[in-house]
Structures are given as structure tokens and as C-alpha cells.
């Protein structure tokens, strides 16, 4: 598949996790990497250009830190402008039909914080339903996100390296059509230790 990765982090220099993931993304040949905050530091999103990008790829991935159970604001702005009626959704909006939509998310809190018993109250997939439904309305196929839990902690104890390396494998797998999509979708979220199962 032709893979497009949108990375968004308003404090890119401070995020060790995303820095590592960016380096991993950029090391993969034959995929497209877009740093949204670098491209649109003044939030002046070029809609036509972004739509062309979407048309030229089969898998659209958003790589971002989970902020307030959602995305950094620039991704939301990107969605508001680029996913136009008549292009992405609506009777005539079939441009993205059949493409894959997924995310690479870093969560500051550990896995236990998510779910009815955790302090975040809901499991992660429930919190991600807006993204999932967005993909569905755009006639796209939603692929379970590749997730890092406890990023703040792992920054301290060296857990970021394996996660970034896993992200690299995940991207290469998607590029080379070696990800077992149904198997991956059977999982709520894909983590580094799941990769052997879902990649051929």
C-alpha cells in the first residue's frame, strides 16, 4: 500500500516519544511523511494539496500524542477543512472510499488508567470512536491504532526505543502488504508486543 503518515505535535522538540517515532518513520523508504506543524506553523492548511495527497495514497495514518482524549488541535483543523462534503463524505463524496484510516498514538498514562476502573474512565477504543466514525463516514476502512501506553514513564526508563522500532516494522508491513489486517482489527489496539502476531 502507498502509506501516508501525518505527524502532529505542537511541542515536537519536547516529545521524546514522537521524536523517536518521527526518526523511525523517516527511515522507512517509499512512504510519505508529513509534519503538519512544520508544514502549517500558521494553521493555513492548503486544502487542495492535502486532498491530492489523500488521493495519492491507500493508507492514511495520523501519528500524535493523545491530548484530552483527542488529537492535537491542528489535526482537528485539518479534518474540518480537508474532509469536505462532496469529497470525503456525502452522496458525491466517494474520493476516499476503500482507503485505510489508522493512527499511531502515544498516551502519557499507563494502560491501567484506561477502562471503567482506570482514572480515565473509558477504554482507549471508546475514546477513539470519533476517529473511527470519521473513517466510516468517509467510506474508509478503519484499522486498529498502533499504541504506546505510559509514554511519560517510558521516557524515563528507556521504553521508547522498542516502541519506535515497532512503529517502523508496522509501517514497513503496511507498505509491503504484510500486515494481516483482519487479525490486527481483531485487537482493540496494536502494541509493540502484538506485532509478531499481525505481521507476516
Amino acid at each position: 500500500m502507498r502509506v501516508l503518515v501525518y505527524q502532529a505535535h505542537p511541542g515536537a522538540v519536547h516529545s521524546m516519544a514522537n521524536k523517536a517515532m518521527n526518526a523511525a518513520t523517516q527511515s522507512v523508504e517509499g512512504i510519505t511523511f508529513v509534519d503538519l506543524y512544520a508544514e502549517y506553523p500558521r494553521v493555513d492548511i492548503d486544502v487542495a494539496r492535502e486532498q491530492d495527497r489523500l488521493l495519492a495514497h491507500d493508507a492514511i495514518l495520523f501519528q500524535y500524542p493523545l491530548f484530552w482524549y483527542s488529537t492535537p488541535s491542528l489535526i482537528k483543523e485539518w479534518q474540518d477543512l480537508v474532509l469536505q462534503h462532496g469529497f470525503a463524505y456525502g452522496r458525491e463524496g466517494q474520493a476516499l472510499a476503500g482507503k485505510y484510516w489508522s493512527m499511531g498514538i502515544t498516551c502519557g498514562a499507563p494502560q491501567e488508567a484506561y477502562g471503567a476502573d482506570g482514572y480515565n474512565g473509558f477504554d482507549l477504543r471508546t475514546l477513539l470512536t470519533p476517529m473511527e466514525q470519521t473513517a466510516r463516514l468517509c467510506h474508509m476502512r478503519f484499522l486498529s491504532p498502533y499504541v504506546l501506553y505510559g509514554a511519560l514513564e517510558k521516557r524515563e526508563n528507556g521504553g521508547l526505543g522498542p516502541h519506535a522500532e515497532g512503529w517502523r516494522r508496522w509501517l514497513i508491513g503496511l507498505r509491503d502488504d504484510r500486515v494481516l489486517l483482519e487479525k490486527a482489527n481483531a485487537l482493540d489496539v496494536v502494541q509493540e508486543h502484538d506485532l509478531n502476531e499481525v505481521i507476516q
Binding site: 516529545s15 502519557g108 505510559g150 509514554a151 511519560l152
Partner: peptide
């Protein structure tokens, strides 16, 4: 430069590391 703490600054600042693991932070 990396403190982002000067007056009037508005930008993303990483929370301290214990935010994730300390359940008290979530109360």
C-alpha cells in the same frame, strides 16, 4: 529555550513523568 516557563508564553509543555503513573493525578 526548553523551560517554556517565561511569563506570557503559550505553548505545549510536557507534564511531569509521574502524571501517568500516579493515580492521584487522575482524581
Amino acid at each position: 529555550k526548553d523551560g517554556f516557563g517565561v511569563d506570557g508564553h503559550q505553548g505545549w509543555v510536557p507534564p511531569p513523568a509521574n502524571v501517568g503513573s500516579d493515580p492521584e493525578e487522575g482524581r
